[in-house]
Design a protein around this nucleic acid. Structure first.
Lengths: 196, 196
DNA sequence: AGTACTATACTGACCGGTCGGTATGTTAAA
DNA sequence: TTTAACATACCGACCGGTCAGTATAGTACT
């Protein structure tokens, strides 16, 4: 993460970044294509040369972010052996990302906003859930197989763990008032209670 | 909950219900005032006789729901003695409400959507968080004082418990695919792990 | 080197529909 | 006959999307 570097004359990438900044400041509905164009430093027509619609920009931004997120997670947990440690690291990673790239996460939350209004965006968010679920569930299965811990109901616990992370992100973006450092510190003790 | 009865010729109440149904189907942005009027069974001019703006309807709906929710929670947990039981009951109550009044929760989620776009709506959501926090924190403090359980960091744990509930609601409204009965069954064991 | 041609990238005026909100008139009950 | 409650017709700002034209840079032929 922390990525989104606009270097190589990749126009679409640059437009995505411009859009991200606008969405972050004004939300999706309140951002006009002219806003994006002016942040991009070009005119509106130019935007439409690269993208067929405003929504296509949002979708592209979402896909990009989703890929980056999963690459980040995998890189973080790959070197660890214990499944419990991987889950702890995953939780910490999200909170650290939220602290570091707050603006990014903030702009990503517009997806949730649009998903409540738009079926095709909702499908993308649901796909994201599915991918989170795959990761967490496989870690719970692995840890149980290795006799690291035992959980009564893996799908239910997986769902609840993911829900907690998501809830924290949503809340922080809304209120900007959480003591994230403090929460990060409590993650190991929390996961250990969860998975004794 | 399960309320929102339109009986007493209270026009504003009826308008709120009509708006709720529309928001639930189409989201806030995609619902026009004409939609609300037609669901209300009257014309647009009539809506504007009762409410000064579309947003005022949303805000009124939110306040109404917020009050109902906290009344519901208090009624549920009042008869219980143990703080841990109260927290379990609270969790179960939310899941049960989500199963029973799915449409209601679904329409409430438009607040989150608008809150990402609109500062005044965000303030209302933040106020809701504050009220949740008050309830959960006081239960954790009480339980700790009664030596029922011990938590290392009450604010952090309170935040995470609330985040989990919120995350579950958001996800269910998005995906409609959770096995909520299963999750409800796991709440006691989860809270007991959380608060040993 | 000069010319012709082409693909890419961009401009900005413009259109057309939508929708929140308003102005004005109507009805029915007290 | 007053007024709460509603209907109808309308306004106008806003904005996503279009399009005819322009600029630039690479290529190919002479």
């Amino acid at each position: 993460m922390g990525g989104f570097k606009a270097s190589t004359g990749d126009k679409k990438r640059r437009i995505i970044i411009a859009a991200m900044r606008c969405f972050q400041r004004k939300g999706y509905v309140n951002t006009t294509v002219d806003d994006i164009a002016s942040e991009y430093g070009r005119s509106k027509g130019s935007i439409y040369w690269h993208y067929p619609s405003k929504k296509a920009i949002l979708i592209d931004l979402f896909s990009y972010w989703m890929d980056e997120t999963f690459d980040g997670i995998n890189a973080e947990i790959a070197p660890l052996k214990s499944s419990r440690d991987k889950l702890i690291r995953m939780g910490e990673f999200f909170i650290e990302s939220l602290i570091r790239d707050y603006e990014l996460y903030s702009s990503m939350m517009v997806f949730w906003g649009t998903a409540f209004e738009d079926a095709s965006m909702r499908r993308m968010v649901v796909d994201l859930y599915r991918r989170y679920d795959e990761v967490v569930t496989s870690l719970l299965v692995q840890g149980q197989a290795d006799r690291e811990f035992s959980v009564p109901d893996i799908p239910a616990f997986s769902t609840m763990l993911i829900a907690m992370i998501e809830g924290l992100i949503v809340r922080q973006v809304m209120s900007r008032s959480l003591d994230l450092e403090r929460i990060r510190r409590e993650i190991p003790s929390l996961v250990k209670r969860f998975l004794p």
